[in-house]
Amino acid sequence: MSASDGVAARAVDVWKTYGSGDAAVTALAGVSVDLEKSRFTAIMGPSGSGKSTLMHCLAGLDDVTRGEVWVGDTKVTGLKDRGLTDLRRDKVGFIFQQFNLLPTLTAEENITLPLSIGGKKVDREWFDVVIETVGLRDRLSHRPTQLSGGQQQRVACARALVSRPEVVFADEPTGNLDSQSGAEVLAFLRKSAHEFGQTIVMVTHDPNAASYADRVIFLKDGHIVRELLSPTADEVLDTMKHLDAPDFEHSAVPGA
């Protein structure tokens, strides 16, 4: 089995348990999901529902207890450290909530870091497109400490895109930003999906942020419990409220 055409990343019955015995915590309890190419997908759910865990497993940052994970044509499950490292370098882009950049490198060096680590040449044309889109042209030679939080996140976005990865994962990329900067970053992520065909997966707590996505997946207690396509912020908020209701026990899993 492989991730068939049109799917950038796929989880098949993924279980993730932390610890063992009495202290065991099941973070993911049989999650199966296909993340289509060129789509902007958001993952939502209450705190502790397993959003970050799912993302880490998909991105090869963490191993799964059971099940399989694919990125593009690569079966992630079973890869050794070297294979995982190369996968992250070549096929995956990352945007973390904070601390995305190396303080010793300039913005430009940070952006091209995955390429230079892999000893690859920078595609100048693509680089220029990315820089233009994030609007960082005049900040390229600055060090991260000389940039605002929003600018830093935009640098991180540019870095995630510049190597044209199979998937870009973003864990609460706007969590630390004011609404104006957050909106810029989100608009940029949506644009990358729609105009450049970049697959984006974003974890967020913010219904407004989720409304930028083409598809929103809801997690609860390690299960996927709902999903919405191109929802508005209100729809997302509404779904979240219902998620908190005690009777909402993975009753409906539409579209899985």
Partner: peptide, 16 residues
């Protein structure tokens, strides 16, 4: 530590 984590996350090999 965090920088090292970041570097590893974006694909720096152990040997590197």
């Amino acid at each position: 530590t965090r920088e090292l984590g970041l570097l590893r996350a974006i694909g720096m090999r152990r040997a590197q």
